[in-house]
Amino acid sequence: MATPVLDKADAAGSPEPGFADSPYITVTMRIRRFNPEISAEATWEDFQLEIDPKERVLDALHKIKWDLDGTLTFRRSCAHGICGSDAMRINGKNRLACKTLIKDINPEKPITVEAIKGLTVLKDLVVDMEPFFQAYRDVMPFLITKDTNEPTRERLQSAEDRERFDDTTKCILCAACTTSCPVFWNDGQYFGPAAIVNAHRFIFDSRDEAGEQRLEILNDKDGVWRCRTTFNCTDACPRGIEVTKAIAEVKRALITRRF
C-alpha cells in the first residue's frame, strides 16, 4: 500500500527538497487561442500551472479558466467521457480532455491543445459542429419500420442480433473520428466516420427496416467509397469503436447487395 500523501508527520530523512511529498508538477499547457473579435489569426498561448499528473487535461483547462484566464473557451458537459463535448486535439491526437490523464501524455514537454480539425473554429477550442451533425442527420439515425401502427408490445431481438451492431451503439458523437479523417479535412463533404458508424448501428439492427435506404444514402459520391482506410478514426475513437471495420462492413453490404 502506498503511504498516504497527507501523512508527513515524521520529518526524518526528508528526501529531495522541494518535491518532498507533493504530487504536484509544473506543466506547460500550450493552447491554440482564437478570438474573432480580437484577431482573425489563431495563436499559441502558454500557461504554466501546478497540477497532479494523475489529473486530466480537462482539470488543467479548468484550472486555467478558473484561476488564470477566464476568457479561455471550451466545451464540456459531463466531464466523464459520456457526453462527448470535449473532444480536442491534444498533442496532435484527437482525444477527450476528460479521459486523458496528464501523466499519460508526457508532461515534461508542453502539452498542446487545439480545436478539432476540419470544422470552423468559433472561439478557442469551440468549433461549429453543424456540418458534423448534418451528416449524422442525413443517415437517419432512428428506428424506421414499415408498420406505421404504434406497437402493442416490445420489439424483441435475439442476443445474437443485438451483438451484431453492439460496437457501433457505443458512439457518443464527440466528432473525434470524423475530425481526424484526412478525407473530411479536405472539403467536409465526406459523410465522415461518425455518420457511417451511426448508420451501421441501424443497418445491421434486425428490428430496423430502412437499411436499404441508408445503404443507398451511403452509396453517395461522398459516402463510404471515399474512405481510404487510414484508420485515423479507429485510433481516435475514445470509446474504442472499431470504426474502420464498421465502414468496411457497410461497403461489403453495399457490394453483396448488388452482386
Binding site: G223, R226, K251, L254, R258
Partner: peptide, 24 residues
C-alpha cells in the same frame, strides 16, 4: 430538420449512383 442530405447550394441534388462502387 429534413432528413435528406442538403448541405450547401453547390452540393448537387443527387450524387448517388453506382459509379463510386464500381470504381472501388
Amino acid at each position: 430538420i429534413e432528413p435528406p442530405r442538403k448541405r450547401t447550394k453547390k452540393t448537387p441534388k443527387s450524387t448517388r449512383g453506382n459509379f463510386e462502387l464500381a470504381a472501388w
